[in-house]
Design a protein around this nucleic acid. Structure first.
Length: 381
RNA sequence: GGACGGGUGGCCGAGCGGCUAAUGGCAACAGACUGUAAAUCUGUCGCCCCUUGCGGGCUACGGAGGUUCGAAUCCUCCCCCGUCCA
């Protein structure tokens, strides 16, 4: 019998770090954590069909974006066509980002009010308003398994004063979103989960304050946002370290928008269970491929006649079937197949890294895994 | 044989007396990319010099002469290419 209720279950914990392995149960399947969520902004992971994602890659959860799907094709249409899962033919779990990141990072004209944010569409300049409540309604129309609250994602750098005002707004919005969410989902217990987002820029005290305030919401899970927006790399991890001890151990933690392959074990070591990032998919299309032996920029002339596989240690279709020389040729020629093969590999790489991390935690050898990963990262750098 | 049009850096193609080592585009080469306005963006791109900052030298706009302080740009002749007329 299928359990439709959303809940998190910890299976193993690392004795030497904050890392843990768990199971995230959703109405659309169980997700083994730590997990990497491929990004499918416009209800598609660019270059991959759900057949590959669910099949060879065995991704359990995808990310989609409220801002983009709200503007096009719109929540009413998606709801009318049976919800996002059915619309994009993805039977597994979906997490939707609230759109706060987009509103604050790309919309030229925007105005923050007490209620939310007024912004202009990047598509045609139309004026729209997002409120904590409206983004909940939109995501419910999509039928998302995990909804994110509307937040403000400040750029870097920003003053302590601004960051403070910003988290106050983000917390206020999170409370409003949760209240609205509870009301709207009262008759469908635990069909959906809602995560608030810890902000606070690069200030540890603000991160702690924000986390403490959000914990009162007794949310299904907690996200740490505003990372990797231009701040020095070590700071991103420090911000997680600041917030994490305040977050309940029995809820999943999600680090939004990170990171490079070598950073994944570091986030997990700091108590993170979920991550998403556009790097594997975007960089794939731009000629940057992640392998077990480091980064391969397939466009480089050195791969012109390289008959070897992209990554000898990888078992994906791309690595099993094609030479580096062929992949380079496809890239240089601007062929569509390149994007597909490259994305397939890079996403597989990320998912494999997370599976390896999870296995190490379950097997009780995460300290060794971490040490080896750090040594390898130091070697490449 | 005649009439026009044209020959520019790897390619295409601007420029039509000095601000031009020469706009653009492509190709090539290198780099960036972190809750995706991204199959995108940035840089280099004649050769040789102390890597010294907008530095110096050399060779360059079919070829050879010429005019001029100064020419890819003007003149003369020649060589190619295209179109049309014989």
């Amino acid at each position: 019998m299928r359990d439709d209720r959303f809940h998190f279950e910890i299976q193993a914990e690392c004795p030497a770090s904050r890392a843990r392995a768990g199971l995230l149960h959703t109405p659309h399947g169980t997700i083994e954590t730590p997990v990497f969520m491929p990004v499918g902004t416009q209800a598609t992971v660019k270059g991959l069909a759900p057949r590959e994602l669910a099949g060879e890659l065995d991704a359990r959860i995808l990310l989609a974006n409220t801002y983009h799907l709200y503007l096009r094709p719109g929540p009413d249409l998606i709801r009318a066509l049976g919800g996002l899962h059915r619309f994009m033919s993805w039977p597994r779990a979906i997490l939707t980002d609230s759109g706060g990141f987009q509103v604050f990072s790309l919309s030229g004209l925007r105005k923050i009010t007490d209620d939310g944010v007024v912004f202009q569409s990047h598509l045609n300049g139309d004026t729209h308003t997002f409120t904590p409540e409206s983004t909940i309604d939109t995501q419910l129309a999509f039928g998302s398994d995990i909804l994110m609250v509307l937040d403000e994602c400040p750029e870097y750098p920003v003053s302590h004063e601004y960051a403070r005002a910003s988290i106050e707004r983000t917390v206020r919005w999170a409370r409003a979103a949760h209240a609205h969410f509870r009301e709207r989902t009262a008759d469908m217990p635990a069909r959906h989960a809602l995560f608030p987002i810890v902000q606070g820029s690069t200030f540890a005290d603000l991160r702690r304050g924000c986390a403490a305030a959000l914990v009162d919401l007794d949310a299904d899970g907690y996200a740490v946002g505003g990372l990797s927006v231009g701040e020095p790399r070590p700071l991103s991890l420090e911000m997680v370290e600041a917030a994490e001890p305040l977050l309940p151990r029995d809820r999943p933690r999600y680090a939004m928008g990170v990171g490079m392959p070598e950073e994944l074990p570091e986030y997990v070591a700091r108590g993170i269970d979920m991550m998403d990032c556009v790097l594997p998919s975007r960089n794939a299309r731009n000629g940057c491929l992640f392998t077990s032996q480091g980064t391969v920029r397939i466009k480089q002339a050195r791969y012109r006649d390289d008959a070897g596989p992209l990554d000898p240690a990888c078992g994906c279709y791309t690595c099993a079937s094609f030479s580096r020389a062929y992949l380079r040729h496809l890239f240089q020629a601007g062929e569509i197949l390149y994007a597909e093969l490259a994305t397939l590999h890079n996403v597989k790489r990320y998912l494999d890294i997370m599976r390896g991390i999870r296995r190490a935690i379950v097997d009780g050898r995460y300290p060794e895994y971490l040490a080896e990963a750090r040594a390898a990262a130091a070697m490449e750098a």
